[in-house]
Amino acid sequence: HNLTITQGKLFFHYNPKLCLSEIHKMEEVSGTKGRQERNDIALKTNGDQASCENELLKFSYIRTSFDKILLRWEPYWPPDFRDLLGFMLFYKEAPYQNVTEFDGQDACGSNSWTVVDIDPPLRSNDPKSQNHPGWLMRGLKPWTQYAIFVKTLVTFSDERRTYGAKSDIIYVQTDATNPSVPLDPISVSNSSSQIILKWKPPSDPNGNITHYLVFWERQAEDSELFELDYCLKGLKLPSRTWSPPFESEDSQKHNQSEYEDSAGECCSCPKTDSQILKELEESSFRKTFEDYLHNVVFVPRKTSSGTGAEDPRPSRKRRSLGDVGNVTVAVPTVAAFPNTSSTSVPTSPEEHRPFEKVVNKESLVISGLRHFTGYRIELQACNQDTPEERCSVAAYVSARTMPEAKADDIVGPVTHEIFENNVVHLMWQEPKEPNGLIVLYEVSYRRYGDEELHLCVSRKHFALERGCRLRGLSPGNYSVRIRATSLAGNGSWTEPTYFYVTDYLDVPSNIA
């Protein structure tokens, strides 16, 4: 807008934040220059609390790290170098490059900038070799853009010569660093050979998330399962459950009422301010606690030095998902009996873990797994792929695949051998790939016309006998059925096997 004052003059007093240069501009645009008398524009009460600059400061050096910015700028000295009290560095987070010096300023003089007072450097006698002032900004957020400017702080001049310097606002972004852990990993099994893994992005990506790394490792069953005799009275049979499938998407929606109208769909109840505040506090606490764990609990591995020492970490090797089922080394339970199943799973520490690289999504279907087997899954978020990966501390989750139908069934015939004193040795093959492992066998036998009897055969007993022995049988026709019990439950009964026990007292003698 054009402003013209045809008559009258300007009068400025007691404006401590208004620089004289701005008042002189007002004289020019209003056409009143030359009308004012000496005392109409006070030299001592206008701009006496402001830094009124008329020179431009330029930054000469900028260096960044993930949490620091090192700045240096060209030296500046007023005509009387004693008038320079120091520099004021202003900075704040700036997602967009549209910041002005006066953003967030209120009537009390406060604003949204963080201000650092910096002492002037030592003055050199040689004007050509003056030290460049600077400042190291610490405690910054990774991968965050900051708006920065600097200006001088000078003393009051009796001659009211307006001098000083100020830089333009520059924008500097800190470097990326390792992201925080992925949030809320959930693993479920939808079949006997697959596990579905879902997660949420890290709360602090500290860069642009480029991919996720998912490692999985087959877990050995508890050692007590191999040692305890679950045929003993009072000892509860062990059981394991597989990871249940995901709930429906509708039930997972946030901010939804727990109660549904019987007449149909209901609208979600909005969260109160107290609920939102509580969630923010919980989120802040979780982030602080995660940072504490990362800094205190997890110790970084030592990389190899120039002395030739090897990095103890196993090298990563990509495998196809079809090879995942046989990740671990199978060892027989008892070496003397080769027909026992290889369900003991000690994992070799030198073995390469299978892994998958996930790009542009937060889910993965891990296939080719062994049925009813526990897996430990390790999830890392990465925001750099080359020249070397920059990934987060791992988040861990466990899951067990679903049982395989008929995996616990005894394959092959049940054979028998009759000894003296009416002892019958029953023999059968253990299931080759049971659900988890076989903890015991149930032997059901009966003599024709009598009630059915049951015998429990422990895992250890089966390994020693290759089956079991029935003792003290009365003469007669017998039928026997056997079924295995694994961590997933009972298998199917075998087809009945028949044998006849004679009275050993009636056996004919070869003595003449």
Rank of each mutant, 00 (worst) to 15 (best):
E389W: 11
Y448W: 07
Y478D: 00
L470N: 01
K236P: 03
H454E: 01
P387K: 10
H416W: 12
F355K: 13
A336C: 10
H371M: 02
P475I: 12
E389L: 08
E249L: 15
W216T: 12
N295R: 08
D229I: 11
H454Q: 11
D273A: 07
S479D: 05
I377H: 05
C266D: 03
R353H: 08
L440N: 08
P346I: 13
Q252E: 08
V397F: 11
Y448M: 03
R240C: 06
D273H: 15
P314F: 15
F355V: 09
S305P: 12
K233I: 15
R240Q: 12
R471A: 11
N435L: 00
S344V: 09
L232G: 13
S283M: 04
R319S: 13
L321M: 12
Y500V: 11
V414T: 06
S283T: 11
D450Q: 13
E452S: 06
T373R: 04
M427Y: 11
E290V: 02
Y441T: 03
G207D: 01
S509H: 15
G234A: 08
T373Q: 08
C266V: 08
S341L: 10
E378L: 08
I511F: 06
R313D: 15
C269P: 04
T241A: 12
H211R: 11
A512T: 01
S392V: 00
D204Q: 12
W242L: 06
E221D: 05
S315Q: 07
V411S: 08
Y259I: 04
F337T: 12
D408K: 00
V365E: 13
F499C: 14
L453M: 08
T328Y: 10
P496S: 06
L369E: 07
A309V: 11
G374T: 05
S492L: 10
V457S: 04
S444M: 08
A335K: 13
E465T: 11
G476D: 01
L505T: 14
A395L: 10
I366L: 11
T288G: 05
S492K: 02
H371S: 10
F372V: 01
L237D: 04
T494Q: 03
Y504R: 13
V397W: 14
P387M: 04
T241W: 14
R286W: 04
T343A: 14
E356G: 14
T288R: 07
F419M: 15
N435Y: 09
V296L: 04
E265P: 14
P338N: 04
G264W: 08
E258L: 06
S274E: 09
V439N: 03
H425P: 02
P338K: 05
D229H: 07
